[in-house]
């Protein structure tokens, strides 16, 4: 690496830093998603449903994917009741053939997909030795591998039109491991890595019209993490679903690459690489997250 390159690097880093700082203080302009076709996985419940309503409100056609047909239809009904355009498809994202087949169907029936929200996720919430093997495989299939299949299905179309946005709803557990989260954390770490890779790969194609957003929310009170009770719950209470969705939508519409909800969780990302693990453990203990999963019940539904 020569001096010229080093100088260039320092210049670019400074530019990146200044523009990132500017974004903190200057309100960025929101982009329009009117007329876009937006695929949302896991749209049957929780924040997937709220995303569908938000995107429909902004004039996008929402394509709803979920394994649960009834819940998915209900979301479609809600969107249509709010005078939005919605179309529901039953799709198990853990099955790649299903994803590819329905992606084709969407392309012919609705049109070119320009926004993809990878939102579907599952959690087992058991310690490693209690985890059933099928549960681990399912967690990976839904939380990690499904991102590969959906992106592979829709990215070529976005590249051809030079217009698109890929949103990964990961979790704060994608940055920190925790008790009772062996499979969930591992799968979400994977999703974070995948998103980072995807960001570079899209950038490398030179297409300026395709954006990515990674969202790392704290626990959202949608029932997915029912029973997760940190001792110091008042410090980091579970997020209201609507609040979380609003924050993430703000990030999406301003093309931000990374959105932490609440934003100050980003602070711990700064701490993690510099604090030894013992010190980080003290922080975790302080918030009472170490024992929070003991009372976990999760979403009780008949499979």
């Amino acid at each position: 690496m020569g001096f010229v390159q080093l100088g260039l690097l320092i210049w670019r880093v400074t530019c990146a830093f200044v523009s990132a700082l500017a974004q903190v203080f200057l309100p960025a302009r929101k982009k329009s998603v009117e007329g876009d076709v937006c695929v949302i996985t896991g749209a049957g419940m929780g924040i997937g449903r709220l995303f569908a309503l938000e995107f429909a409100k902004l004039g996008a056609t929402v394509v709803l994917w979920d394994v649960d047909k009834a819940a998915n239809e209900e979301t479609a009904r809600l969107v249509q009741a709010a005078e939005g355009k919605a179309k529901a498809y039953v799709c198990d994202v853990s099955n790649k053939n299903d994803v590819y087949r329905i992606a084709e169907q969407v392309k012919t029936e609705v049109g070119d997909v320009s926004i993809l929200v990878n939102n579907a996720g599952v959690v087992c919430g058991k310690t490693l030795l209690e985890l059933p093997d099928e549960g681990i495989q399912r967690t990976f299939a839904v939380n990690t591998l499904a991102h590969f299949w959906t992106v592979k299905a829709f990215l070529p179309g976005m590249l051809a039109n030079n217009h698109g946005h890929i949103i990964s709803i990961a979790s704060i557990a994608g940055h920190y491991g925790g008790v009772g989260l062996c499979d969930y954390s591992a799968s979400k770490f994977g999703a974070v890595g995948f998103e980072e890779c995807l960001r570079y790969e899209i950038r490398r194609t030179g297409k300026q019209g395709i954006y990515t957003t990674a969202a790392y929310p704290w626990i959202i009170s949608t029932g997915m993490f029912e029973g997760f009770t940190p001792k110091e719950g008042w410090l980091l209470p579970p997020l209201e679903p609507q609040h979380a969705v609003n924050s993430i939508m703000q990030g999406i519409l301003t093309n931000r690459e990374v959105v932490f909800v609440p934003g100050y969780l980003n602070f711990f990302t700064f701490l993690k690489p510099v604090l030894p693990m013992d010190a980080m453990w003290a922080v975790v203990k302080f918030f009472g997250i170490d024992t929070a999963m003991d009372t976990f019940t999760g979403r009780r539904k008949e499979e």
Binding site: Y176, C182, V192, G193
Partner: peptide, 17 residues
């Protein structure tokens, strides 16, 4: 990258557990 990120998360969780 995805598989290795997952490993880092797995061992962090396992250590905590």
């Amino acid at each position: 990258v995805t598989s290795k990120f997952s490993l880092v998360g797995f061992y962090e969780s396992l250590a905590a557990e």
